[in-house]
Computed example of a mutant assay.
Amino acid sequence: MSAIDEEISPAPAKAAGRPSATLPVTGEIVSGREWDETVAGFDEVCQEQLFTFATTRWPGTVQEPVLFRLGGEIVGGTLMMVQPLPLRLASIAVSKWGPMLKDTHRPDAAGLHAGMIEALIADYARKRGMMLSVLPRASIEAENGRYRQLLARGFRAGSILLFPNRYIVNLRLDDADLRKSFAQKWRYHLNKSEKEGLSFEHAGAERMGEFHALYKAMTDRKQFADHSAYETIDTLMAMEPASLRPELFFVRHESGIVGGAIVFTAGDRAVYLYGATNDRALPLRAGYFLHWHIIRWLRDNTPAQWYDLGGTDGYQGLHQFKKGMVGDAGVIRPVPPVANYAARPLPFIVGQGAFAARDAYHAVQRAIHAWRNPDRRPDQERASGGEGP
């Protein structure tokens, strides 16, 4: 194992750009196996920060799992994805949804996060001359404190997701309060679905073949551009430790499956990954029935506080469906822009240019697909987005 060998001391109270509470964490690059086993117990663990996921999703990047300690105790970490830029003029080191805290309820959480950022700046920006890019996850609070902290430290706003809003359901409600929290129209459709003879099933990985068939049939029928990381799902369903494996759910009508969903459930925020339905699902309102039972299952079987439904890709129908489910007890919050930092001009200029080129390419691809499929409309179980670094 190699180590990030620069220890960061607490910043003086008046040091420009640094919060006074910055804590002296140390970072160490560990093996992928050790990383996944360790972060399985983190409050902020998510699939994008898993070594097993990232090596399958982004094979062209070098994965560097960094664990941070304070006084010998593991307090957080981040999976860094290092991407050389064209002509080898510079490299980008990306932390997507990181750094992660092990315990978000610690009173010194902000200081720990600041310390982890300082350690990353010291190693990736100063010592190794890279552009450091950090993308915090959407905040439950109205203001994204992590992003504000990055800007105060000298990071500059970069690329922003085309449709940044994330729809996040409160999982800590009893059945009565949960139903009351839904928008009136969403609750109306749920009531209708419960009269259709549907049944809910929590399934094991051995039934992934049924979901694959449902998903393939849906994507063939809808012909949508799938920007998700669906190719990683079989690897995730088999990974160790088992607590990191997503959960599989189905909704059945009479003798046949009409819809299904895959949800990542580790940590304090469950995340909807993929969904699929067939033609019979829409008139049955199967999506409402399925998500109602998923929310209740997550509440009763996981410690998660929130259920992140992902984004909408700009589709108004999907917005209305997810907004109604979030209701008045959940939140709709944007993913902030990428925050970029470099200690020298060249890596910053080259890195910003690479992000701009990538964004332009994706915009052209979306425009071409929209032109070729002007009448396509997604249903309510469209797979959630999976934008890359």
Rank of each mutant, 00 (worst) to 15 (best):
L132N: 09
Y147K: 05
Y147G: 06
E143Q: 13
R137N: 15
I160T: 14
R128D: 09
G145F: 01
A114L: 02
L120W: 04
A142Y: 05
A119L: 02
R153F: 02
Y124P: 08
R137A: 15
R156L: 09
G154W: 00
R148C: 09
V134N: 08
M131I: 14
R146T: 14
M130R: 15
G158Q: 00
R156F: 04
E143G: 05
E143N: 10
G115I: 00
M131W: 08
E143T: 14
A125W: 00
S159A: 15
A114C: 04
M116K: 03
A122F: 05
L151E: 08
A122D: 09
A122H: 06
D123P: 04
L150V: 01
M130E: 13
G145D: 04
D123E: 14
E141T: 13
R146H: 13
G154E: 01
A114S: 12
I140A: 09
E143Y: 06
S133V: 15
L151N: 06
R146N: 11
A114V: 01
E118A: 15
P136H: 08
F155R: 01
G154H: 02
A142I: 09
M131F: 10
R153L: 04
G158H: 00
L151F: 03
R137E: 13
L120A: 10
S159N: 12
L150T: 01
K127E: 13
M116T: 05
G115C: 03
M116I: 03
G158M: 00
L132G: 08
I160C: 12
I117Y: 04
G154D: 01
R126V: 15
A122T: 06
A152F: 04
P136G: 10
I121N: 07
A122L: 07
A138E: 05
